[in-house]
Design a protein around this nucleic acid. Structure first.
Lengths: 209, 209
DNA sequence: CACTACAGACCAACCAGTCGGTCTTTACAT
DNA sequence: ATGTAAAGACCGACTGGTTGGTCTGTAGTG
């Protein structure tokens, strides 16, 4: 059974996902959660704090997953595969959180904003480092500017929140497979046929076709 | 010399870019534009109409550019190069428009929303068709699902609005070069060394290094 | 009796949009 | 050229409705 706090979070996510933070009033949240203004403000200092709590829940999860992926693998190729996969999969679990996150974080007061930004940067740095490591170790093409490559990866994956549907044509695992394939084709050199073709075959997805 | 209408648009773009549509009041816009409520509502029916006008300005531009790129080239490889390049470059010209566009279009009334959505879809379809055409003609890897590839491209390019700075480390042309390189590495088959390596050398950028 | 969890009436602030009015430009007849 | 009337451009006080947040009260629990 959910307590009121969780119920408020759950309901406000549904509302935020459809209408955005500013498109939803406290009154609406309160009604959707079958409670009252008093109930709401008993659990949250402000509407803004609710937004922060939502942000924090998912970004903490992403960072933790990425850190784990980073530690359990040694080769940069495997690392980036694992990071992308967990990153993509988050959108299946946390899509509403993420939608709100990317659309509304600008409205947060500086104190909240800073905390959010710090965790985001940590995650970005992790990808960046894997790419640089992969270049140094000779796995990835050295001519790619690591920061631009990182931003490209962040972009293509983050954008998922704009179009992903659970009941869509492709499952989240299939999306992850294709995106990993795209990224590895970009990162791995064209000529080293042996290693490249070995890494690029992603069985899960293409076997189905 | 700017007329009041243009001045309002110009000033509101600056404000929206920093605070989002709902973070800016008509009063603020009016003050930044050195005018009055009367002046504002003489030129716009509502605050929402202003948002629509901003949207429309840039999406019309993107679509026109992409259509032109599509018509002047014949090979899918050249087409996608040209489309991505013009697409990326829009962010240099229209960044504030785009930021507002992607953060606030959900707040628009259905009548506006529909028009926006239609133009967005047209653009998406254009990329999708080029990819499918490229696959049919044997230029691009046939195992890639065209729609997921399209969404990946849209994502990595659209995300630029989150991080691009005119005075940043890389110019918009360099970003375009790298992104085209990434995308073509993903699209072109690994084995056809001859044609692939010929298309993948983007002189502008890598010559500088 | 003290404490938590919640209820809901209430309020001050704010905001998009209105409206009667003024000033400036345009159009046209004399 | 000059008078004049209509149209367009702009002003800013005002309003009606809404919103985030407060405050007093109360039911239940240990």
């Amino acid at each position: 059974m959910l307590n009121l706090r969780d119920k408020i979070i759950e309901q406000s996510l549904i509302l935020f996902d459809e209408n955005g933070f500013h498109g939803v009033t406290v009154k609406q949240i309160v009604e959707a959660s079958n409670t009252s203004k008093g109930g709401f403000y008993h659990h949250f200092h402000s509407k803004e704090e609710l937004l922060f709590v939502i942000h924090d829940a998912f970004i903490t999860y992403v960072s933790k997953e990425a850190k784990a992926a980073n530690e359990t693998h040694t080769s940069p190729v495997e690392k980036i595969q694992a990071i992308i996969r967990s990153f993509v999969k988050v959108f299946d679990l946390y899509k509403p959180h993420i939608s709100v996150f990317y659309q509304e974080s600008m409205y947060l007061k500086p104190e909240y904003e800073q905390q959010i930004k710090k965790k985001r940067d940590e995650f970005k740095q992790m990808i960046l480092q894997v790419i640089e490591e992969g270049q140094r170790m000779g796995y990835f093409r050295k001519e790619l500017p690591p920061i631009l490559t990182t931003m490209a990866i962040l972009g293509m994956v983050n954008w998922i929140y704009k179009w992903y549907r659970r009941d869509g044509e492709y499952s989240i695992d299939e999306i992850a497979d294709v995106f990993i394939d795209l990224i590895l084709h970009s990162l791995l050199p064209s000529v080293e046929g042996e290693y490249r073709s070995q890494m690029l075959t992603i069985p899960f997805f293409y076997d189905k076709k």
